[in-house]
């Protein structure tokens, strides 16, 4: 596995990104590359700015300074809808399905911006190919699914746009350990199907093990980056963020 930005072409390049809420800055000059075709996992203690980074990339938070380049296009200052159209899909931390709609309707809404019916149908079929288990719940209301199942449907919905970059913000949050395996398995499935993923994960060990690249954030800056294994095995990082040597 190569280090970030060394071999695989970066699909996203963040340079000197400054962003925050109210008067304060949460991100204080972030530099980061997300390699195409890989999984880049961002870890760090609470308050490091991981979720803020996701919000800034997806347009939910307007950066104060810096650039977020997606294949030559600067995302900074664009609306969430414009960023979505450019192929960046954000799966937020909290469950985001429409509870009173069926699973199929939820997934259909993922392809809302696709005008062509045939394309939507083709994408839907492709999504069910990646997650065949979802077909069993297709007609159930999303609100009746378990937390892990809802996560899979959220992933499926995100895939409807064939994203160039998929942002997953703490997908393991609130899930039982047994379910976590399925969720991480699903992330691997999506990546194997060709989706580039930027993952923010509290469960740092599991996240880094899954990822080709790892990034450690601290106080709104990137403290360390490297391959997932390098970051996982770094003794200093292990002691600081992963609860001791790995």
């Amino acid at each position: 596995m190569t280090g970030p930005g060394t071999a695989a072409r970066p699909v996203l390049t963040i340079d000197n990104l400054v962003a925050g809420y109210g008067g304060g800055d949460v991100l204080r000059g972030v530099h980061l590359d997300v390699a195409e075709g890989g999984i880049t996992c961002v870890v760090g203690p609470n308050g490091a700015g991981k979720s803020t980074l996701m919000a800034a990339i997806s347009g939910l938070l307007r950066p104060r300074l810096g650039s977020i380049m997606l294949a030559g296009e600067n995302l900074a200052g664009r609306s969430p809808r414009q960023i979505l159209r450019l192929g960046v899909v954000h799966v937020p931390q909290n469950h985001s399905l429409f509870r009173d709609m069926t699973v199929t309707e939820n997934i259909e809404l993922g392809g809302y911006t696709l005008a062509d019916r045939a394309t939507r149908a083709r994408r839907m079929a492709a999504v069910f190919e990646v997650f065949p288990q979802i077909a069993g719940w297709a007609r159930q209301k999303a609100g009746s699914l378990s937390g892990g199942q809802q996560r899979l449907v959220e992933f499926a919905r995100a895939l409807m746009l064939e994203p160039r970059l998929l942002l997953l913000d703490e997908p393991s949050m609130g899930l039982a350990p047994r379910v976590l395996r399925d969720v991480f398995g699903a992330i691997r499935q999506m990546n194997q199907a060709g989706t580039t993923i930027l993952l923010v994960e509290q469960n740092a060990r599991a996240g880094l093990r899954l990822s080709s690249h790892g990034v450690v954030m601290e106080n709104g800056q990137v403290r360390l980056s490297g391959s997932g294994r390098e970051v996982l095995e770094n003794p200093e990082i292990g002691a600081l963020y992963l609860g001791g040597a790995v």
Binding site: A125, F128, P132, Q133, G136, A138
Partner: peptide, 11 residues
């Protein structure tokens, strides 16, 4: 396999 069969219906 069952899932895949159903997927065709849904799509």
């Amino acid at each position: 396999s069952a899932g895949k069969a159903a997927a065709g219906d849904t799509a």
